[in-house]
C-alpha cells in the first residue's frame, strides 16, 4: 500500500471536511438553538465523515452526504435523551442582552423562537431549504423521506411560521414609528 498517497488523501479529505464546518454548524444551530450542542453535533458529523470518507463514491454528493450524517447524529442524540427531554417542548428564552435592544436582533430572535416551536421534521426541512438553499430532492435524500413529504412539511412549516410571526407584526409596526429613514 502506498502510505504517502494514503496519508495525502486523508489530509485532503480532512481539509475538505473543515470547509463544510461553518455551513453544518449553522444548520445544526438552527435545529438545536444551542451553540455547544450544535458544535458537538458538527464535530461528531465530521469525525464520522472522515472515518467513512472512503465510502463516498461521488464527490459532488458531498454536501448532501454530510447533511445526512448530521441528521443521523441529531436523531441519535435525541433518541438517547428522549426520555429526559423533548426538544420540541423547549421554548427559547430571551435573556436580557444588549443586542435585544436592537430591532434587527429582536426580529432574529423572534424568528428563531418561531422556528424552535415547529415540529422537528418541519424545522429540519425549512432550514435545509431556506438557509442552505438545498433542492427538495436533496433534502429528501438527506432526511431519507419521500419528496412529497418534504413538500408537505415545508408547506406546513412556512404557514406555521407566517402565523407565528404574524402575531408579532402589530407590535413591530408600532415600534417602527419611532425610527424612520428620510430619503
Amino acid at each position: 500500500m502506498d502510505v504517502f498517497n494514503f496519508l495525502g488523501r486523508t489530509r485532503e479529505a480532512k481539509l475538505k471536511l473543515e470547509q463544510h464546518r461553518q455551513r453544518l454548524y449553522r444548520i445544526a444551530y438552527s435545529w438545536t438553538h444551542n451553540a455547544a450542542l450544535a458544535d458537538d453535533l458538527v464535530q461528531e458529523t465530521l469525525a464520522k465523515a472522515l472515518k467513512k470518507s472512503g465510502q463516498l463514491r461521488d464527490p459532488n454528493a458531498g454536501d448532501a452526504w454530510l447533511y445526512s450524517i448530521l441528521a443521523n447524529c441529531y436523531h441519535d442524540h435525541f433518541r438517547r435523551l428522549r426520555t429526559a427531554e423533548e426538544i420540541d417542548e423547549n421554548t427559547l428564552t430571551h435573556e436580557s442582552t444588549p443586542e435585544k435592544e436592537s430591532s434587527e436582533q429582536e426580529i432574529v430572535l423572534k424568528v428563531r423562537a418561531a422556528i424552535a416551536r415547529l415540529a422537528e421534521g418541519q424545522r429540519q426541512v425549512v432550514t435545509l431549504v431556506d438557509i442552505q438553499g438545498l433542492s427538495y430532492m436533496e433534502v429528501a435524500q438527506i432526511l431519507n423521506v419521500p419528496i412529497g413529504t418534504v413538500m408537505s412539511r415545508l408547506c406546513r412549516a412556512r404557514y406555521a411560521l407566517k402565523d407565528l410571526l404574524g402575531e408579532l407584526a402589530p407590535k413591530l409596526a408600532a415600534e417602527e414609528t419611532k425610527i424612520r429613514r428620510i430619503k
Partner: peptide, 30 residues
C-alpha cells in the same frame, strides 16, 4: 408572504453565535 418567511428564516441564521469553545480541527474526542 412565503418569500418574506423564506427571507426571514435565512436572515435569522446568517450570524449564529459561535460555540463557547470552538473546535478548530477534527478530532475524535470532541
Amino acid at each position: 408572504e412565503l418569500r418574506k418567511v423564506r427571507d426571514l428564516v435565512s436572515l435569522a441564521y446568517r450570524h449564529v453565535p459561535a460555540p463557547a469553545c470552538s473546535t478548530s480541527a477534527i478530532a475524535v474526542g470532541h
